[in-house]
Amino acid sequence: MGETTGISAMKYIKSCMENDSDGIRILSDKPRIHSSTVDFQKLKQLPEGTLGYTYFNFLERNNITADSRDMVRFVDDIELAYVIQRYREIHDLVHTILDMPINMLGEVTVKWFEAVQTRLPLCILGGLFGAVRLAPKQRQNYVKYYLPWAIKTGMNSKLLMNVYFEEKWEQPMNNLLNELNISPLIVPKTNRLDLKINTRWKDLN
């Protein structure tokens, strides 16, 4: 569904990448993020607080791998197929960058961020219908904190499809967030209890 309904958005993303120096290099090099292209043991050994170390810990903590993303099957255009493949493969990096857990609230938040940045229909649908499945306390926090932050951050930050993550593993997270113009979400501690629900929602990616 994501592939067959998102051609217009894929063209939009590609055009944005073609207007960015790093985006152009990504489209040309076509880097991939999976176990055969990324040395995850090296990421594990990087200093704490770097992107690579934080990304590795995110995957390990959630018992997931970079190889869990399906290959694109229904997009004939090679360039557009790579665009949607890249989108899928950086999804867990988006979670890492935004410090969003893999639960319903975290996934819906990431979906809205991605929807603003990419215009992909499935992201928009995921944000709309995923919110319906939130528990009452989660929904309160979602409306008050997460949704406004996701939309504002998606609009104001650098397009993450233009980030050559493979060249930034050793970069400190604080430095990277400043570079991307992303400010962390601030939620009162008493309102973060709802993040303990750990429901994976990978089918939308």
Rank of each mutant, 00 (worst) to 15 (best):
12 Y>D: 08
80 L>H: 13
29 D>K: 08
97 I>W: 02
112 W>V: 07
13 I>P: 11
45 Q>R: 07
163 V>G: 00
96 T>Y: 15
46 L>N: 11
111 K>N: 14
38 V>W: 00
130 G>F: 11
118 T>V: 02
109 T>E: 00
105 L>P: 02
4 T>R: 14
119 R>P: 04
197 I>A: 09
155 M>N: 08
66 A>H: 07
66 A>N: 11
181 N>V: 04
196 K>W: 07
147 L>V: 10
31 P>V: 06
24 I>W: 00
110 V>T: 12
185 L>A: 02
79 E>P: 05
129 F>N: 06
161 M>G: 09
126 G>R: 13
10 M>L: 14
52 G>N: 00
75 V>Q: 07
199 T>M: 12
114 E>S: 06
76 D>V: 00
149 W>I: 07
200 R>V: 12
81 A>I: 02
150 A>W: 11
1 M>A: 09
55 Y>F: 15
156 N>E: 13
144 K>F: 07
185 L>H: 02
85 Q>G: 02
88 R>H: 06
19 N>R: 10
34 H>T: 00
132 V>Q: 05
202 K>E: 09
84 I>F: 03
131 A>S: 15
126 G>T: 07
21 S>N: 11
176 L>Q: 12
52 G>W: 00
73 R>H: 07
198 N>S: 14
38 V>E: 02
93 L>N: 05
127 G>Y: 09
78 I>D: 11
125 L>H: 04
64 I>T: 07
114 E>C: 09
166 E>F: 08
125 L>F: 14
154 G>Q: 08
163 V>F: 03
184 P>H: 00
74 F>Q: 03
13 I>Y: 12
15 S>D: 11
75 V>T: 04
151 I>T: 07
63 N>W: 11
170 E>F: 07
38 V>Y: 01
149 W>H: 15
199 T>I: 14
142 Y>K: 05
112 W>H: 03
131 A>F: 15
120 L>G: 09
75 V>W: 05
146 Y>K: 00
133 R>L: 15
187 V>E: 05
52 G>R: 00
178 N>V: 09
79 E>H: 05
112 W>Q: 05
11 K>V: 03
81 A>Y: 03
16 C>W: 04
82 Y>C: 04
85 Q>T: 06
157 S>I: 10
150 A>C: 11
122 L>K: 11
16 C>Q: 15
11 K>N: 06
22 D>I: 01
167 E>P: 01
132 V>N: 08
138 Q>S: 15
171 Q>S: 12
155 M>L: 15
19 N>H: 10
13 I>V: 15
87 Y>I: 03
116 V>W: 03
39 D>C: 08
91 H>Q: 03
116 V>G: 12
194 D>P: 01
68 S>I: 06
2 G>V: 08
116 V>P: 06
1 M>V: 06
193 L>G: 10
137 K>H: 15
77 D>Y: 06
173 M>T: 06
158 K>V: 14
30 K>I: 03
27 L>W: 00
21 S>H: 07
2 G>Q: 13
148 P>Y: 13
179 E>R: 06
172 P>N: 11
161 M>K: 03
75 V>I: 12
72 V>Q: 13
64 I>D: 04
136 P>R: 05
13 I>T: 12
77 D>K: 03
139 R>D: 02
69 R>K: 13
91 H>Y: 06
